[in-house]
């Protein structure tokens, strides 16, 4: 329980930094920290495989990609939005947050289900992935291939 509160505090702190930091690189570093802490949250929910994937794919690959693009473009600092926008955005987000949290009021699942020790490991995920979800798995591979080709086509220098 105490672990959850520490992790939740860190997640919220870093994600707020993502939104509020003026420097893009600082935002990116805060996002990487958020993703790391969320990987630990996944571990507390018996999802070790996804925790590792989160660090490899998100905190590793995607963050490196974002940092490379920031480095490549070297964007000038952009002026902040007027205070009215900050007010509007924060109030809207707070309203949305209350709305979503109100949905949680009635617990759909009260007690924790009993699960085998192998729950969330590579074996149990692969078992489900290659039987029930074989078609979506194939589609996901095609999606990644299309994304690679699309990214190369978009980002290459036009001749």
């Amino acid at each position: 329980m105490i672990v959850f509160f520490i992790l939740a505090f860190l997640t919220l702190l870093f994600s707020l930094l993502v939104v509020t930091q003026r420097n893009v690189v600082h935002s990116a570093m805060a996002l990487a920290a958020t993703l790391f802490v969320m990987a630990v949250l996944f571990l507390t929910l018996d999802a070790p495989m996804l925790g590792v994937l989160q660090i490899l794919v998100y905190a590793g690959a995607i963050m490196i990609l974002i940092l490379f693009v920031i480095m490549l473009l070297n964007p000038l600092s952009i002026e902040a939005r007027p205070a009215a926008w900050w007010m509007l955005g924060s109030l809207g987000a707070a309203a949305l947050c209350l709305q979503l949290a109100a949905l949680v009021h009635r617990p759909a699942v009260s007690a924790e289900a009993a699960v085998p020790a192998s729950f969330g490991g590579p074996e149990s995920i692969a078992q489900s992935l290659f039987t029930d979800f074989a078609l979506p798995f194939g589609l996901a591979s095609v999606l990644l291939l299309v994304a690679i080709i699309g990214a190369v086509a978009l980002a290459q220098r036009q001749r």
């Binding site: 919220l12 964007p75 952009i78 924060s90 949680v104």
Partner: peptide
């Protein structure tokens, strides 16, 4: 966990609305 997730989602929405940088 659900409330934490809701707050995180709202922070993400706020970031999309407030910031003026495509990467952010």
């Amino acid at each position: 966990y659900l409330v934490l997730s809701a707050v995180l989602f709202a922070i993400g929405v706020a970031g999309v609305v407030i910031r003026r940088d495509v990467i952010v």
